[in-house]
Design a binder for these strands. Structure first.
Lengths: 186, 186
DNA sequence: CGGGAACCGGAGTGATCACTCCGATAGTGT
DNA sequence: ACACTATCGGAGTGATCACTCCGGTTCCCG
């Protein structure tokens, strides 16, 4: 996959760029200009386009980073002794972490669509599927909910929470509503 | 408020523009160019900017139209004999109508923020407040949910449904999950 | 029907943005 | 230390977009 290993300064700049891009895109949205990202990273625009030939690819890279953090969290929680609690914790943590600029919601939304996020998306879906199935087997989550349903709810609840970002009480209330709806009815 | 009444052709073009803008923005998002809107309306760009001096104002006008339709629906349902059913119907109808391009969600999201949507936003909030309070009084909706919570959930569920736009079964399942979560727990 | 005002259309303008190119710079193997 | 090359920085380029301007057209009123 990886051809020649990157030179030291190249790798350093690549990581700086990813971090800067994540911050800038989170604050201003993906419509932020490439020069803004370059300035935030302390490099020239040429460097941005050498590492990410297209703005689209830079955006995708940021999304991939976010998605792999999520997948990692799901993997860790999948081993939990209490699947219901693990499920709830993943849901809450994910949604609370999305309190700015639709960041995670957009990333999640692409997980099932964009080609370049295919691998990470598959990883995340598999991990989430385990989390969901175990929670359903122990009766903690209603059995009719599917994996796509869950992803839609994650995206939607993130959006709801983002809209309520200035009121922590409202945030927890909204998450509780959705989690209650995910429990077995009756 | 309105100075001289518009000439016949001016009024006709204004309505054509609003309809075209709504369609174009729904299909391509608000990043669609002004010329696209003009072409869809069958007028020149000059005409667009005469009626809406800024693209932002055109967007706001489209959002206002959407919001007033929602507020109208809420008003009609507020008179219902079954507040719980009225609440559920409003929720379902609103969310199902938002199946494309974040259209309603964005409009709703602005209802509490943007200045020019202030009036319509206030109307919608008042109507929604009545719907919510009545449903809570009859025990159909849990009492701890507030009006901002409800708006957040409307926005979020719209987003979730939009993401699942190709699977009607998933759509109804997701709406049911949120509506169940909004009922009195236990 | 006719004159005058309101309105229309679309070429033109300035700004912005994604992306390119090449001289300068800095890392790496010997 | 030195040469060789990967990498860097940022001025330059072409395209696009929101917005303006004015000659021509259409509507309204007496």
């Amino acid at each position: 996959m990886t051809g020649t290993p990157l030179r030291a300064d190249a790798r350093r700049n690549r990581e700086r760029l990813l971090a800067a891009a994540e911050q800038v895109f989170t604050e201003q949205g993906v419509t932020a200009s490439t020069e803004d990202v370059a300035r935030a990273a302390g490099v020239g625009v040429g460097t941005v386009f050498r590492h990410f030939p297209t703005k689209e690819q830079l955006i995708e890279a940021v999304y991939q980073a976010r998605l792999s953090r999520l997948a990692d969290l799901a993997d860790r929680l999948a081993a939990s002794a209490d699947p219901g609690a693990a499920f709830a914790e993943f849901f809450t943590t994910t949604v609370e972490g999305a309190a700015t600029k639709n960041a995670l919601a957009e990333a999640l939304s692409r997980a099932g669509v964009a080609t370049s996020t295919a691998e990470v998306g598959q990883w995340l879906r598999r991990a989430l599927g385990v989390l969901l199935t175990r929670a359903q087997e122990t009766g903690a989550v209603r059995p009719d909910v599917t994996l796509p349903d869950l992803m839609g709810l994650l995206i939607g609840t993130s959006r709801a929470v983002e809209h309520l970002s200035d009121d922590p009480g409202a945030r927890t209330r909204v998450v509780r509503v959705v989690l209650d709806g995910l429990r077995v009815p009756g």
